[in-house]
Design a protein around this nucleic acid. Structure first.
Lengths: 229, 229
DNA sequence: ACTCTTAGTTGAACTTTGCAACTATCTGAG
DNA sequence: CTCAGATAGTTGCAAAGTTCAACTAAGAGT
């Protein structure tokens, strides 16, 4: 019989906390890289997994009990060196979640670490995280991807802060709003749920001790015309 | 022993011919989908392949005797259904080559087909091609990717035609040139091989029976600021 | 020398962007 | 009740970038 590589799925679960992108890591209980920090991951179970995404969701469910709001295949990392047990294939994914949802799951198993200044990690997980962060940062520059790091309803200022934290620099308020095609005046809620609208205005507001800010909901993953801020 | 899925590598090799994107296909000699058209692909050989890219290059070398000028991982297609023999993993790649180089290899084994209007293909290869074309078209809109469909040296008009054929619509000449940041006046060859330059001007010209056009070489894969034409 | 054709440049109209000043709406203190 | 403070949201304009068309350049063939 021909030998075939081991196939596993890894998930780079990212969230935004304390103004930084953070990644979910756990400490390996056994096997190679014992006691080392690692990404959540697991082997494909050919008897019960109906797809790769199913494997990714199963792994996350087992470890955290939660479903991420956003999941996307990142890239497949493979080769003879990445696992001391031999040729292996890791189908890496990026997942995004608002931090509030993660807190509810408790952090007995998982801990969140800033994506920069990480300690040594198992396998090629450091490289996977680097590439995941690059993908998110890149995609944030031309799409509404960062919306999935926030709760379902959010204010424009919250979203702007999210972009700023991903980029690590401030963005102009009017640039931000025009990039998102905000035109609240006409786009009153209940009216035309326009397919072209990037964000959907709700009729709910979030009031602090100032003028309340309108809450928005993301329509779908939309792309901007420009990719630079 | 735990069962593990089969792992193979597929390559969507694209080229531009007769004003259309074309894909390399061969007819399967055996196995599932016998006599069906299929992408070049093969199993990972854990004893001789040093990486996934090595597998992809080996497969192409075996079939065509050529190295593509551009190779990039596309996405991993996996699941219990795509191969009748059971759970399988196909790490799909996109490769680009100028058509002239392909002609030299002869077409006993491979044939080129327009990417639209394809007949039934083996496995999920139709989906892989759809996604590869989408990736190329998308990446063409904001990068110099199409340069790898041309010979090493090319004229601006050739490159413009390449973009137009990928998009399926004409682009304005000045839009095209300003998007590429052409400023031949200062960028005379031999001078500053500026890292920021998208294209590098050579001092060679290609003359037809009109004014000869300067030949350019691509510097590196560069990204544009705007993503729409 | 003249014409035809394609290459490459220039400049002006138009559009988009980015900043700053302005108005709006809430809370809480006096 | 009013006013100050704070954040939300709008508007208008200057600067920068984009697109188009008209112009010049350079070769080949007649």
């Amino acid at each position: 019989m021909r030998t075939t590589p081991n196939v596993s799925v890894d998930v780079v679960l990212l969230s935004l906390h304390q103004g930084k992108l953070q990644v979910a890591l756990h400490r390996r209980a056994r096997g190679p890289f014992q006691d080392c920090l690692a990404l959540p991951g697991g082997y494909v179970h050919v008897d019960k997994d109906g797809s790769i995404e199913a494997t990714a969701y199963r792994v996350l469910k087992q470890k955290t009990g939660l479903q991420p709001r956003y999941l996307e295949q990142l890239r497949t990392f493979a080769g003879p060196q990445r696992d001391p047990r031999g040729w292996s294939v890791a189908i890496s994914h990026v997942a995004l979640m608002p931090y509030e949802e993660l807190r509810q799951a408790g952090d007995e198993v998982f801990h969140f670490h800033d994506v920069d200044g990480l300690p040594d990690l198992a396998f090629d997980h450091a490289e996977q995280i680097r590439e995941a962060v690059r993908r998110v940062c890149n995609k944030a520059s031309y799409s509404t991807l960062p919306c999935w790091l926030l709760p379902e309803l959010f204010t424009l200022t919250q979203l702007q802060r999210t972009y700023e934290q991903i980029f690590g620099e401030t963005v102009s308020r009017s640039t931000f709003r025009s990039r998102l095609g905000i035109k609240v005046a006409e786009a009153h809620p209940g009216e035309s749920a326009d397919q072209a609208d990037i964000l959907l205005a709700t009729d709910q507001f979030q009031g602090g001790s100032q003028r309340p800010a309108r809450l928005f909901r993301v329509n779908q993953l939309s792309l901007f015309k420009r990719a630079c801020w």
